[in-house]
Computed example of a mutant assay.
Amino acid sequence: MQINQLTRAYRYDGIDLPIPPHLAGDPQALRAYHATLYPAILNAEAIDVGVAGTVHVTEYRRAVGTKG
């Protein structure tokens, strides 16, 4: 058996977002931090994309549709 250490990555619109060490364990605070960089993240859905190599990827996807 082999144990691999996974790192987390957050992506928005194809861009890997920075993860400050003091916010790494708090997903809500991290989302608020990322929303300061890209305000559309507040309304985006956080999708667990899965594991790619040694990285666990979460992607913010904008809601698509009509207003109203």
Score class of each variant (00 low, 15 high):
51 V>S: 03
18 P>H: 08
3 I>F: 06
49 V>E: 08
63 A>M: 11
53 G>T: 06
8 R>H: 12
63 A>G: 12
42 L>Q: 11
1 M>F: 11
22 H>S: 09
49 V>R: 13
39 P>R: 06
43 N>L: 13
28 Q>R: 12
16 D>F: 13
37 L>Q: 06
10 Y>T: 01
11 R>D: 05
26 D>G: 10
27 P>H: 06
41 I>F: 04
55 V>T: 15
33 Y>K: 05
50 G>T: 01
44 A>V: 07
65 G>A: 02
18 P>C: 07
17 L>C: 05
65 G>D: 07
66 T>C: 08
25 G>H: 05
61 R>S: 01
24 A>W: 02
13 D>I: 04
63 A>S: 11
50 G>R: 01
29 A>C: 07
39 P>G: 08
64 V>W: 15
8 R>M: 12
5 Q>P: 00
30 L>R: 03
41 I>P: 01
26 D>F: 04
66 T>D: 14
47 I>S: 05
66 T>M: 10
25 G>E: 08
33 Y>L: 05
43 N>P: 00
46 A>S: 11
37 L>T: 03
50 G>S: 01
60 Y>S: 00
18 P>V: 07
38 Y>H: 09
13 D>P: 00
60 Y>I: 02
31 R>H: 01
62 R>V: 05
59 E>Y: 03
28 Q>D: 14
67 K>A: 14
65 G>S: 08
15 I>Q: 10
36 T>A: 12
40 A>T: 11
41 I>Y: 02
64 V>N: 13
11 R>L: 09
57 V>C: 04
55 V>P: 00
10 Y>H: 06
42 L>F: 13
38 Y>G: 01
60 Y>N: 02
21 P>E: 14
2 Q>G: 12
27 P>V: 06
28 Q>G: 05
14 G>I: 05
2 Q>D: 13
57 V>I: 13
58 T>P: 00
21 P>K: 01
62 R>S: 09
2 Q>L: 15
18 P>N: 01
66 T>E: 15
28 Q>A: 15
22 H>G: 05
37 L>D: 00
64 V>T: 15
51 V>W: 00
49 V>N: 06
61 R>C: 03
30 L>Q: 01
1 M>T: 13
38 Y>V: 12
30 L>I: 04
3 I>P: 02
47 I>F: 07
42 L>H: 15
56 H>I: 02
